[in-house]
Structures are given as structure tokens and as C-alpha cells.
Simulated assay, not measured.
Amino acid sequence: MASGIFALLDDIAALMDDVAAMSKIAAKKTAGILGDDLAVNAEKASGFVSSRELPVLWAITKGSFLNKLIILPVTFLLTAFIPWVINIILILGGLYLAYEGAEKIFEYFFPHPTAKKVALLEELSEEEILALEKGKIKSAIVTDFILSVEIIIIALGTVVDQELSMQIMVVSVIALIATVGVYGIVALIVRMDEAGYKLIQWSAGRNNLQYKLGTLLVKALPRVIQTLAVVGTIALLFVSGGIFAHQFPALHHYADFLPGWVFEFLFGFIVGLVCVFLVMAFKKIVKKESVMH
């Protein structure tokens, strides 16, 4: 009896070793997009009232967990029965990411008239703050869903020749890292200033290491957020361009003089701009029809 239990424990230990080894390989394959995921989500989780940062981040994290619970079983089922649908989902997701990235760049150079008015408001009502939060949370969860699909499919591709049980465990580990790891780091970033204030308070006004570190954290946060906004936008275009380049590899032959990363960025940006103009045209048509009626 005892020998049977020990044999079972040996099998479990060996399985866990295999899962750890395969998870390490999958993590390396998804490292790039996990970095993009971090930049995008840190940018989306910032810009809230200080007291609302953690509640908003928790709402996005819960949405991310729900995304994974939906994506994981659906991905395994689609891969087993109708694998071609995965490519369509990736392309649609890529279009959304390209649109988001290109729209931010377009808005920077050609800001919407109402955007300027909102930016000049020094105070917002509680209802306006809650509406703003709700919109940003929804946008963050949708973007997380698309990035999660990409991460999970890439991770699955590294273990596609393994047994189903191994696939489920390895991909689940990567999905957990993509949520807990990414949003844990995001939480640290958006609370940098609070940590800085605490260090300044503990220094009791003395110009010591605590005071200097606290001051550095407080002053660094706005620059970090600005940097993440830029990096997050670029990451959206890189991820979308990477999806398109992978799905349509023949197109790279027409621009083989460009490095791969430049081609992917331009691909994502051009497709994104096309999507922006199509959406703008659609909104104008709908607005014109509503005026006529």
C-alpha cells in the first residue's frame, strides 16, 4: 500500500516537472506579448482618482480572470474540432487592437473638439467619474480578452504535440501568469506615488534615503504613466501587426527590404488607420440618417 502511494507521488512529481519545463518554454514564447500586455494594461489602469485606482484595477483583474475562464475551454474545443476558426478570431482581434492603437495616434494629432473641453475641466461630478471609470474598465477588459486569446494560442502552440492533460496544465499556468503577474506589476506601478508619500512621511522631514526615494517615486509616476501610454499604444500596433504578418506571410515579400519589426508596426498602423477612417465614415452616415429622420 505504502509503495503504491510513493509510486503515485513519484508520478505526480514527474508530471509537475514536465509541466514546469513545458511552462518555461511556453513562457519564453509568450514573453514578448506578455510585455506588451503589461504595457497596454498599465496604461489603461492609470489615470484614475487615487482612491479609485485599486478598486478599478481589481474590477479589471476580475474581468481578466473571467476572460481566461471563457477563452481556455473554448480554445481547446475549437482547436480540436474547428481549428480554422482560431485564425478568424485572431484576425478580428488584430483589427480591434490596430484600431485602438491608430485611433490614439490619430486623436493625438487631430483631437476631437469635445476632448479638449473635457481635458480643461478641473473637477468632475461623481456620476461623470463613475461613467469614465466604467468606460475605461470595459475597454481594458475587451483589450485584455484579445491579448489573452493571442497569449493562450501561442502557449498552446508550444505544447500542441503533447497530451491533452499536459496542454491544459501548461496553458493554464501561462494564463495565470498573464493575469496575476501582469496585474500585480500594474498595481505596483499605479501605486508608486502612494508608496512615495509613505516613505516621505516616515522620513519625518529628514533629508535621508527614505525621503529621497519617496520623492523620486512621487516625481517619477507621471513620467512612467506618460511613457506607458506611448509604449502601450505602440504595443497595440506591434501585436496587431504581428498577427496580420503571421496570418498573411506572403505580404512581407513585397516589403522584404524592411526589418520584420518595422514591417509589423507599419502593417498594424496602416490597417488601424483604415479601420479608424471606416469607423468615422460609418458614424457620419449614421449621424446623417438620424438627422434626416
Score class of each variant (00 low, 15 high):
Leu38Trp: 00
Val40Gly: 02
Ala42Glu: 05
Ala42Thr: 05
Ala45Gln: 05
Ala45Pro: 05
Ala45Ile: 06
Ser46Cys: 08
Ser46Gln: 06
Phe48Gly: 05
Phe48Gln: 05
Phe48Arg: 07
Phe48Ala: 06
Val49Met: 11
Ser50Ala: 15
Ser50Asp: 14
Ser51Ala: 12
Arg52Gly: 05
Leu54Asn: 09
Pro55Leu: 09
Val56Cys: 11
Val56Arg: 04
Val56Gly: 05
Leu57Cys: 06
Trp58Gly: 13
Ile60Met: 14
Phe65Asn: 04
Leu66Asp: 01
Lys68Arg: 09
Leu69Ile: 07
Ile70Gly: 06
Ile70Tyr: 02
Ile71Cys: 06
Pro73Gly: 06
Val74Gly: 03
Val74Ala: 10
Thr75Trp: 04
Leu78Asp: 01
Leu78Trp: 00
Leu78Tyr: 01
Val85Pro: 08
Asn87Pro: 08
Asn87Asp: 15
Leu90Arg: 07
Ile91Leu: 15
Ile91Glu: 01
Leu92Cys: 13
Leu92Glu: 07
Gly93Asp: 00
Gly93Met: 03
Gly93Ser: 07
Tyr96Leu: 12
Ala98Asn: 03
Tyr99Arg: 01
Gly101Trp: 00
Ala102Ile: 01
Glu103Thr: 09
Lys104Tyr: 03
Glu107His: 12
Glu107Lys: 12
Pro111Ile: 03
Thr114Met: 13
Ala115Leu: 14
Lys116Gln: 14
Lys116Arg: 15
Lys116Pro: 08
Lys117Asn: 15
Leu120Asp: 15
Leu120Gly: 10
Leu121Met: 15
Leu121Asp: 10
Glu122Leu: 14
Glu122Cys: 14
Glu123Gln: 15
Glu123Asp: 14
Glu123Pro: 07
Leu124Asn: 11
Leu124Lys: 15
Ser125Lys: 12
Glu128Arg: 15
Leu130Phe: 10
Leu130Ile: 10
Leu130Trp: 08
Ala131Ser: 14
Leu132Asp: 11
Leu132Tyr: 12
Leu132Arg: 14
Glu133His: 07
Gly135Phe: 12
Gly135Gln: 13
Gly135Met: 10
Gly135Tyr: 11
Lys136Phe: 09
Lys136Trp: 07
Ile137His: 03
Ser139Ile: 06
Val142Arg: 12
Val142Trp: 07
Thr143Tyr: 03
Thr143Pro: 07
Phe145Asp: 04
Leu147Gly: 01
Ser148His: 02
Val149Gln: 04
Glu150Asn: 14
Glu150Trp: 00
Ile151Asp: 03
Ile151Ala: 05
Ile153Glu: 01
Ile153Thr: 09
Ile154Asn: 10
Ala155Asp: 00
Ala155Ile: 06
Ala155Asn: 00
Gly157Trp: 01
Gly157Met: 01
